[in-house]
Simulated scan of single mutants.
Amino acid sequence: MEITLTGITTTGAPHLGNYVGAILPAIEASRRQDVQSFYFLADYHALVKCQDPALVHRSRLEVAATWLALGLEVDNVIFYAQTDIPEILELTWILTCVTAKGLMNRAHAYKAAVAENLADPDKDPDKAVTMGLFSYPILMAADILMFKASKVPVGKDQTQHLEMARDIAARFNYLYGEHFVLPEAVVDEKASVLVGLDGRKMSKSYGNTIPLFEPEKALRKLIMRIKTNSLPPEAPKDPDTCTLFQIYQAFATADESAAIRQRYAQGIGWGEMKQVLFEYLNARLTEPRQRYQELLEKPDHIEQILKHGAARAREYSVPFLHQLRRAVGIRPLGG
């Protein structure tokens, strides 16, 4: 059976861009019966960027509640927290010992940090660069290789990590025999990349996001802040260059989008379109928002679901790590 794996980084509450770009396709995929899917909270990864314990703790709860509220089929997939699988960290060290530093030097996040540092007057390339930032592609490789995932859905900006995981796996297989499956990136070319409040890509790093389960009044307030141009209400408008339409289209059916596109051609005021978008999103999100709030009040219930998923995941990771340890020579002295 084909094995797929999806990681969800726990760095803040998910936003609309996360939903249409990654969460919705993954939720739909979780209903498939012909694959074994692993979904995990990448909470060790969160430590690379966040040193606020309260935020990390809260985000773990919020992200897990989000996926459950939106209908993740936990009986059909293995849903767990990365931190509940100790074998992943041991595998990370084993893989670190076969990974070339030159490979890590080429990681996009590390190169971006160095480039930013070199632009500063003091020219210190390693300023604020932790070993977590430098080597986290190895942890990501361990996440994937531990469960022999052959398909890993990722965004275009994550394909390098899959290439690195393949390189690391191939090096290990060359040294110690064929143990790892070489994973393939699955990039959904049709996946929407939403624009945020300021016209740039919706991203927490830009501070321009619309949180997925924002309360009704706060949701309306944020939508009213979305940047538009100065065309008057009666003027025809191009929906394909409009953030409001892009967000609407990501959630709407083809017929609904076509109807709104026609209203753009006829002329629609920005205030009216913002109200249309708010009402549509609010209606779509009201029920999952309510489920989300109910789940936040039941952290023990969520913890139980994650522990159950971890127990199932360790049915794979424990024997496989035992096999890998023997492969590298760590086995009983008498055998």
Rank of each mutant, 00 (worst) to 15 (best):
P288Q: 01
A119C: 02
Q160H: 10
R60H: 01
G196F: 04
Y39A: 11
V318S: 03
D84N: 13
V74K: 15
L16Y: 00
T241V: 10
L103H: 13
A141R: 14
P125M: 10
L295T: 05
F251S: 05
P25T: 12
F180P: 01
L61V: 05
L95I: 04
D255A: 11
H57Y: 12
G177M: 10
T130V: 03
V276P: 01
L118R: 00
A327Q: 03
E184S: 06
Q304H: 14
P125F: 04
F251A: 09
P25Q: 06
D240T: 05
A115D: 12
E287K: 02
F278C: 06
L285I: 15
Q290K: 09
R106M: 05
R106G: 02
T286I: 13
D43N: 08
E294Q: 14
D52S: 07
K49V: 04
A109H: 09
E297T: 06
P332K: 00
A107C: 04
G132K: 08
P125W: 03
E272V: 13
P137T: 14
E287P: 04
A310Q: 05
Q262H: 09
N76S: 13
N76L: 06
G17K: 07
D143P: 09
V276R: 07
V152W: 11
I138E: 10
R31Y: 10
A327H: 02
T6M: 13
L222Y: 02
F40H: 08
P215Q: 05
A13D: 12
R166N: 07
W270L: 06
Y39P: 13
K217H: 14
D120R: 09
E116G: 11
G269E: 06
P25E: 04
P183R: 11
P215M: 10
A191Q: 13
C242R: 09
L285R: 01
V35M: 08
M104N: 10
Q249F: 08
T286W: 06
R32Q: 10
G71D: 05
R200E: 10
A69P: 09
V154M: 13
P14I: 01
T96V: 09
M131L: 15
I330M: 08
N173H: 15
R314S: 10
T10D: 04
K307L: 06
A283C: 08
H45F: 05
